[in-house]
Nucleic acid binder design. Structure first.
Length: 358
DNA sequence: GACTAGTGTCGAC
DNA sequence: TTACGGTCGACACTAGTC
């Protein structure tokens, strides 16, 4: 089973301010460059009717909603959404044999045991879960029930908002066939384009494409994944989430620049931030990287492995700065956004969680 | 050929 | 007419080493 909260951030705002329910709402990430520079994180359905959607520049969303003087453009409040999410997740957890947290607004549940693999009972359980979230938190969600993770994910997205879609094993081919390939998680704009050049638009088309051709086009793993997805096959089990593999910070600069004097303090601040997160989780890192988004929004990255895992802020700063200086030697356009990342994580000796031994 | 490191791309939310 | 966030994961590709 896959549970997905509808237009989550905007719904959180509606819950705490019910008068917003009938009005277009866009929850925005402002870049700090002043004015309306930034992007929409989530829009409610009233706003979507006018074309506003997540990922869209705020200025463009405002233009789409120019005709609605009751439209609200709110700044994201991640702390609040985190609280709502935690409360909702603790309710959902009670409905699962195994619960897997995916992000603030979605989760997978294995309910095979408690339903005896009966889809009628699973469907009933999903409805109970929806009712519980609705009555206890006024939260609406969409749920997909199917034989595996992939199909459940596609199914939860099939009918939104407030949807419940059940795909029984014998219905898989009929359900999947007519769907556009874009509905498959992992297929974005680029992959869609490349498959279109092979005459593939729907899942049924994808099913007809040879696995060797897919592997030739996308590599071994991705090719195999697409081949299986077309048949609705996925054997990945639902499992309690594993720990993170990286920590990163990325921020938009107040102006584009290639001046190390201007960039250095920003880099240092992000290093301190990333370092703080790693320390809080008692992990050491061995890989340090920087991320540069240029004026034209294209990206560059530089990374380096340290000699040994560390938790030293000085070492992190020194390495990040060296990477930045290196990158600047060949940097032709201005830098718009700058980021720092640490990866190749290991737990601090003696502080690891006992569960990690199993 | 197996492995590691580094870079870049794509995608989800 | 243009416009544009932040965090994370997966993996392809290439080069170097053994």
């Amino acid at each position: 089973m896959h549970v997905d909260f509808d237009y989550f951030y905007a719904q959180c705002e509606e819950i705490r301010r019910p008068e917003l329910r009938t009005r277009p709402v866009c929850v925005c990430v402002y870049s700090g460059r002043g004015g309306d520079s930034g992007a929409v994180a989530t829009a409610n359905y009233a706003a979507r009717e006018y074309g506003a959607k997540s990922g869209m520049p705020i200025t463009l969303a405002k233009r789409s909603l120019a005709g609605r003087d009751d439209a609200e453009f709110l700044r994201v409040d991640f702390g609040h959404y985190e609280e709502v999410s935690a409360a909702a997740m603790s309710i959902i957890r009670g409905f699962a044999d195994t619960f897997e947290y995916v992000g603030r607004d979605e989760a997978y549940l294995d309910v095979t045991g408690r339903t005896g693999a009966d889809f009628g009972r699973a469907s009933h359980l999903a409805q109970q879960l929806k009712n519980a979230l609705r009555s206890r938190m006024q939260l609406s969600c969409s749920v997909g029930v199917s034989p595996n993770r992939l199909l459940s994910k596609i199914a939860s997205d099939y009918k939104k908002p407030d949807g419940l879609t059940v795909v029984r094993p014998r219905e898989v081919e009929k359900f999947l066939g007519p769907l556009p390939i874009r509905d498959v998680p992992g297929i974005g704009g680029r992959t869609e384009e490349r498959l279109a050049s092979e005459g593939v638009a729907t899942m049924e088309d994808l099913r007809r494409l040879d696995i060797f051709r897919l592997q030739q086009m996308f590599g071994r793993k991705t090719g195999t994944y697409l081949h299986n997805a077309a048949k609705g096959e996925d054997e990945t089990p639902v499992s309690e989430s594993s720990s993170r593999a990286q920590y990163s910070r990325l921020s938009t600069l107040s102006r584009d620049s290639t001046d190390i004097g201007f960039l250095r303090p920003h880099l240092a601040e992000m290093c301190r931030d990333v370092h703080g997160s790693a320390v809080a989780d008692s992990v050491m890192f061995r890989s340090v990287g920087i991320h540069i988004i240029q004026s034209d929004l294209s990206a560059r990255t530089r990374s380096r492995m340290l000699r040994a895992p560390t938790q030293s802020l000085t070492e992190l700063e020194r390495c990040a700065e060296a990477l930045l200086e290196e990158a600047l030697e060949t940097q032709e356009s201005g830098i718009r956004r700058l980021g720092v990342r640490v990866a190749d994580l290991s737990e601090m000796a003696g502080q690891s969680d006992i569960t990690s031994y199993f």
